[in-house]
Structures are given as C-alpha cells and as structure tokens.
Amino acid sequence: MRSAAVPSLMWCVFGITTGEFVIAGILPDIAGDLTVSIPVAGLLVTSYAIGMIVGGPVLTALTTRFPRKPLMLTLLAVAVAGNLASALAPVYPVLFAGRMITALVTSTFFANAIVIAASTAPPGRQAATVSKLVFGMNLSMILGAPIGTFIGNDHGWRATFAVIAACCALGFALVLWLVPDVRDAAPATSAVAELRVFRSRDVQLAIAVTAVANAGLLMVFTFFASLVTDVAGFATEAVAVLLLVYGLGAAAGNLAGGRLSDRAPMASQLGLLAALAAALVLTWTTAGSTVAVGIMVFVLGALGFSVIPGMQARVLTTAAAAPTLAMAVNASAYQLAAAFAAWLGGRVIDGGLGLRSIYLAGAAVTVLGIAVSLSAWLRDRRASKAESVPV
C-alpha cells in the first residue's frame, strides 16, 4: 500500500493545481458569461493567490501537530467543495469566493503531501520520491490546463470546474484507501515556533526574490488566452494547444534550470532572468505573428520555469528550521507574484496601453526581479567574506 501512496498523492496534486493553471485558458469565456471585463476576470487569479498566501503559511503552521491523513482528507474535501461552488456560481462574486476557498488549502495540502511522500520513501530515495509530486504539478500545466481548456471550449467553463471537482473527489478516495496515516511525520514544534522563520532576513529576501522575479511572466500567463487570440490572431480552439506548448517548455526549462542551479545557483538565476526579460521584449515586437508567438510561447515557458528550482532551493535552505512550512512559504511567495501580476496587468490594460503592452510590462517587472536577485547575491557574498575573515 505504501508503494501506491505517492502515485495517489501525485494525482491529488495534479487535480488541485489544474484548478490553478486552467484559469488562463478559460478566462475570456468566464468574462463573457458573467458579463465582466477581462481585467476584472483576471482578478480571479488574484483571489486564488490571496487564498494561498493567507492559507499557506498560517494553515500549515496551525496544523503541524495534526495527524496527516485526516488533515489531507479534510483539505481535499474543501477542494471538492470549492470547485463545485465555482462550477455552480451564478454570479462573479460567488465564483471569486469559490476560487479563494479552494486556494486556502492548496499550499497546505502540497506541503503535507511532501511530508508523507518523504516518509514512505526507501532510504536514500526521498528526493526522487518528492520529485514525483512536483511532476504532478508539471502535468497539471502540460495536460491539465489544455484538457480543461478543451472541456471549457466544448461544454462551457463550468464543466471545467466540475471535472476538477471530480478529480479531487477521486483523490479523496485514493488517499482514504491507499495513503498510510503517518502520525510521526509532524515536527514537534508549535505554530509560533514555525512562524518565527519569517523573522530571518535571509528568508524575507528569499521570498522577495521568488515573488518579484516571477511576477513578469505571471502577468503574461494571466492574460494568456486574450494575448494569443486578440493580439496574435489565433483561433480560440488553439489556446489549449498553445498551453500544451507552454507546459512542454516549462517542463524542459525546469529540468535544465535545476541542473544549472546546482552548478552556479545565483549566476544562472541572473542569466536566465535576463534571458526571460529579453524574450518578453522580443515577444512584444513579434506579438502579431502567429508563427513567432507560437515559438515564443515555448521559449517563455522554458525560461520562466528554469529559474524556479533555484528559487525553491534558496527558500528551503533559508527556512531549514521549519521544513514543512518552507514549502508553503515558497508557494505563497509565488502566489504573491500572481496576485500582483493580475492586478498590475489589469491596470496596464485599463490604462489604455492595450493588451500587447503586457509583454513590455512583464519585461520591466522581470528586470526588477534581477535587481532583487542581485541584492541577494551581494548579501550572500558579503556574508561569505565575513565568515572567511580570521578572528
């Protein structure tokens, strides 16, 4: 049964995170059906992000002493309810609330899933086992978001959320049946002790790097469907295919970025962010060409996800005193970027600059991410030199 625990948890991660990523493919349909503007519909990304930002660190810290399996089942039940509420939402505020409810449990579920996966792994195989859960998240972008978009295009966006709710319900059954109750996995620390990790200046800077450096590409991803249809001229049916291309690029970039980060963490991060900023500018110049945009979608996915492994490693290292919370912290930082990106993108569009300018705004924010990363690098170098000075 322990051998089936990780695939079961991977399915759950796939289902829950598909609900996060699929919004990029069905955003115009939601806006049209609920009679709201694209910028207002983009705030659904903000609501999800706020839910993860608040729910991640706080809920994870408050539940560190809870038995893992009952907690996981409760979180999955909330995810099912939130997605059903989204599918049945009669008006925009109800959909907004449904997305936020689902988001509240996402980070905590992922953090606890990693604890259980690591505890069921054979000696020396913990990292490889945990990577399978991350692969579930990759699959949600490569397969989940495109499939969800296809469903939304053919049967309406409500059907997309209904199917995601069904996936989470199946995950509930799999966890109930196949996942062991790992009672000794919870660290013997209090919520207050876990939350003290935020006092560290290094942790704060690591969170800032993750949040700011990812915001530029997330701005583009939030308005992905509108950018490729209204600006590049693709048919609506092509959005799902382009999301698949983006996901394939993300998977390739994630693997390559992990290897580069192992060799030269900060140097590779700075170089990859610079390449991402340049790619966003290049996409702006070619935004009206379907061929060029089709290529750049893959490139942007690859470059955007190539920096994530290094950022994850930095957060985990600086927050080593609270390993479970560290995963939620990293997710919250990423969602902070998503919330800011959706808000700023809406302001750019409403300001009369047009959809196409989203690429330039994303490049500018990415350059700011380079500056924050450079600050972290200089801080690390000063600390290293101080430690090397003989007393």
Rank of each mutant, 00 (worst) to 15 (best):
N214V: 10
V209S: 08
L205S: 03
D181S: 07
R201C: 07
R183F: 01
L218A: 08
V209L: 08
F221D: 02
G171V: 10
V175D: 01
P187R: 13
L205T: 02
A166F: 12
A166Y: 07
N214P: 02
D181R: 02
I164R: 01
F223G: 00
A188W: 03
D184R: 14
R199D: 09
C168I: 06
Q204T: 03
I164H: 05
P187H: 14
L178N: 08
F198W: 09
L178I: 02
L195Q: 09
D184Q: 14
V212N: 00
C168V: 04
A162F: 03
A173F: 13
V212H: 00
M219N: 02
A191P: 14
A169C: 06
L174D: 10
N214S: 14
F224A: 01
V192N: 07
A162L: 06
T210D: 07
V192H: 13
A206E: 05
M219Y: 02
V209E: 10
A169H: 06
R183M: 03
A173M: 13
V179F: 04
W177D: 11
A173I: 11
A206S: 15
R201S: 14
L176F: 12
G171T: 07
G171Y: 08
R199Q: 12
V197Q: 01
L174A: 14
A173Q: 11
A185N: 05
Q204I: 04
R199A: 13
P187L: 09
V203T: 07
